[in-house]
Write a protein that binds this DNA or RNA. Sequence first.
DNA 1: AATGAATGAGAGTTCATTCAT
DNA 2: TATGAATGAACTCTCATTCAT
Lengths: 217, 217, 217, 217
Amino acid sequence: MAARRVPAATVAIDGQAAAGEGKAPRTERGRRTQQAILDAAAQEFGERGFHDASISGITRRAGVALGSFYTYFDSKDAVFRALVTHMSSQVRDHVAPGIRAAKDGIDGERAGLAGFLGFVRDHKEIYRIIDESEFVDPDSFRRHYATTAERIRQRLTAAAERGELRADVGEVHAWAIMGMNVFLGLRYGVWDADLPADDVAATAAAMLRRGLAVQPD
Amino acid sequence: MAARRVPAATVAIDGQAAAGEGKAPRTERGRRTQQAILDAAAQEFGERGFHDASISGITRRAGVALGSFYTYFDSKDAVFRALVTHMSSQVRDHVAPGIRAAKDGIDGERAGLAGFLGFVRDHKEIYRIIDESEFVDPDSFRRHYATTAERIRQRLTAAAERGELRADVGEVHAWAIMGMNVFLGLRYGVWDADLPADDVAATAAAMLRRGLAVQPD
Amino acid sequence: MAARRVPAATVAIDGQAAAGEGKAPRTERGRRTQQAILDAAAQEFGERGFHDASISGITRRAGVALGSFYTYFDSKDAVFRALVTHMSSQVRDHVAPGIRAAKDGIDGERAGLAGFLGFVRDHKEIYRIIDESEFVDPDSFRRHYATTAERIRQRLTAAAERGELRADVGEVHAWAIMGMNVFLGLRYGVWDADLPADDVAATAAAMLRRGLAVQPD
Amino acid sequence: MAARRVPAATVAIDGQAAAGEGKAPRTERGRRTQQAILDAAAQEFGERGFHDASISGITRRAGVALGSFYTYFDSKDAVFRALVTHMSSQVRDHVAPGIRAAKDGIDGERAGLAGFLGFVRDHKEIYRIIDESEFVDPDSFRRHYATTAERIRQRLTAAAERGELRADVGEVHAWAIMGMNVFLGLRYGVWDADLPADDVAATAAAMLRRGLAVQPD
DNA sequence: AATGAATGAGAGTTCATTCAT
DNA sequence: TATGAATGAACTCTCATTCAT
């Protein structure tokens, strides 16, 4: 069932992003409590889903009193939003290095998918939380995928400008690639890791390379 | 918010499929009431989501008394399951003709995507319901996507055997295509229909055709 | 678990007693339906207790439609009352012959207890129904025990007048004997038949005989 | 309708016995609330019976919010069980001193009955609650009477060993005495106190003394 | 800052009873 | 007479949130 604990860094409430979500703790002790609540929330939401999760479940896991929750977050929705926001950037931070190190555009997408698969295998709860945000916090959901698609599009366009890909690559391709990644992540990351992540990524990338290559047709 | 009404056929509880979900009515009058409840449930779940939906909301829409709900369904979960099952087959029934009429394998996938886009534009609530089943009724969710992917794989394999596609097409490609379809459906079907469905489908299909063609490399 | 079926005679709605409880059926067919409902009610109440029992459970057992229940009884309470009344007289009818055949007063009580023990072993549901009437239909409950106690008292008094028992036997002794019988019935009839009914009755009767004998002090 | 208030001690949730029934309050304020709920439950169950009693009725009497009930008890059944358990021991605690102070075995039983009669006259709701447990919580019911009978048997046996009673006293006699007590309690304690408790007890004890004496036959 | 008791709106579900056929 | 659909009041239980300490 993958790692139950989310590394503190994963959900760290850093300056700006936390604005409006978590309430800024004033003391060091407060900071630790808030962090404990966030980690516990990641577990609770991941295991039980948003609606079955309970504040008391979160505080129990965190080892703090029920009332303390409201010292750091305004509501159940607020923690969830904070979680989605930070997991969203976590995924990106995790795959970014691989993409940067790639030989060319398509290899970058391959690296991105490979990294994504590896990530969700270790963080199944994150996958579920982001998915569920479609129903709990549609704005975050939309922002997450809109941003992700836009980044893919930018990379595709840049590669096209470098002459690697056909000139007509655009938003449709970006969304297609993202959907591909998400569902391969579901199938080979969350459901059943019966194929090495690199093989899945290589297969998909090969299809894309031919499909988006500048040459044929 | 798209069509509010689900065509009766969509949620008709037909013989076997409904087994165990809805309780079979014994009179014609009962059949109509059950259908009314199902239609109302499709609306209610589509608009408010599973958890915010209420039985009383469903019966109010259906114009029947609260208690009548339980004459035909065992629980809130049970209607939801019945709905997912039947919508799942509805989607398939809707796109099947286009796929069968296609010139070749990839053209079939193009027709499938085009049909899917058109369908979700008219039935946004169906989209949401199937998606939410991931959290409400994981079994139905899994069955729906596993079945869909398997059909795509079979079509790809058949096309490969006809010499249209590369011999190595398989499950990974099927899941990639399905994910592509789902996310293009989300972006261009549910979110914003700012591109004709046929154009989106043509763009994606072109990429697939080159990517899966037998020739290059 | 003893006999599940109550012989028709057991709960037969005879003329007067039924007045006001069951509605008099006009046809022979109706009589059979009413009887079927009563038998089914005896089972249902016996197995599940008054509150967990349901009208639909009764009609299902009886093999008739839900609505038919109200053709023959006014309410759930009404069947229950009818049942208590008739079981009450059933018990009496069952033990009466033994009492009449007894050699003397105390032997009559012995025979009564022995008969009662045998009866509850075969009709555990009856035991439960009469007991539960304390909470469902206090009037029937009170009437049942008041009548039973009064009969015992009359028998004791008669025996005293015949010189068999002390002259001071009265209501207190009657209630004491009845309580004894009921609890011995619970312990050795319903709970665990680990002692022959006759032995239990003989032991209790021996105690009574000495306790109520005219001789010593 | 007898005393409305149950002395705090009666329903105090003490250490072990309460394990699993009430949830241990962590503060003094919580202890008071739990006690108030228990007292209110005793009233409510006593007056209306288990099924007609409602949680909201209990909390209304207790002067707390509906939700507070669930802070201290898991369910309606749970309070009922807690109540039965503690009332059961209350009755015992109440009659024990009289029994210990008795001159001999039979006098102990006389004192026990007299004490019991006095107790049920003041606590009619307790009588009803224990009786109703036969249908609501059969385990508690069984435990209560099995324990009570066993204690009587032990006292009888001890008296027999002291030469006061016949050697063959045993379980049957114990159950007979208990049934006697319960029904005399019902008749002269709950229904109608038309005879002094001591007279009833004396009459019953005289019968027992002769019935169980070592001498005759 | 931290605790945990208190609150009460709200939901799903049951089922005796009535009604239309 | 028989059927079974329809009704809706009533109930238990949950839990996010507030409050007092």
